[in-house]
């Protein structure tokens, strides 16, 4: 990087995995952004919360199961994972269904957090 600028990057994931490639390629950007020592937050909204569902078995669809990568994020110092409560509830899920520790936020708290960011990338 040409200088040491640190910005607040937020990645907003609103899409389910496997049906499209967005979730996987979003994760690739997240890892690189962390490698560039930026302040990274990940947000899971709407169908994006399905990305974190435990127990993904992809053998039968012959697509790589990339969900273990979410557990590896901590090793890249990506520790700010936020899930919107309303999105979880609307899908019959609870925190126990998720494969990583997250902070569950109400919609207003989530909105306020978005407002604090410098760069918001939505996938």
């Amino acid at each position: 990087m040409s200088d040491a600028t640190v910005k607040k990057f937020m990645f907003v994931n609103r899409k389910a995995p496997y049906g499209t490639i967005y979730a996987l390629e979003s994760l690739e950007v997240v890892l690189i952004t962390a490698a560039f020592d930026q302040d990274v937050s990940l947000v899971f909204l709407d169908d994006g919360v399905y990305q974190l569902k435990k127990g993904q078995q992809t053998k039968g669809i012959e697509i790589k199961n990339f969900s273990p990568t979410y557990r590896a994020l901590e090793g890249y110092d990506v520790e700010k994972l936020y899930v919107e409560r309303e999105s979880l509830e609307a899908r019959g899920l609870t925190e126990e269904d998720l494969l990583v520790d997250v902070v569950v936020l109400g919609r207003a708290e989530m909105g306020a957090l978005m407002d604090e960011q410098d760069v918001v990338l939505s996938f």
Binding site: M1, S2, D3, T5, V6, K7, F9, E28, V29, I32, T33, A35, F36, Q38, D118, V119, L121, S122, F123
Partner: peptide
């Protein structure tokens, strides 16, 4: 080039706008 170029666009530009 690599994804680092996207991160750099985020850090160097005043605004980053996504079209998708």
């Amino acid at each position: 080039s690599g994804l680092g170029q996207l991160v750099e666009a985020g850090t160097q530009c005043d605004r980053l706008i996504t079209f998708g």
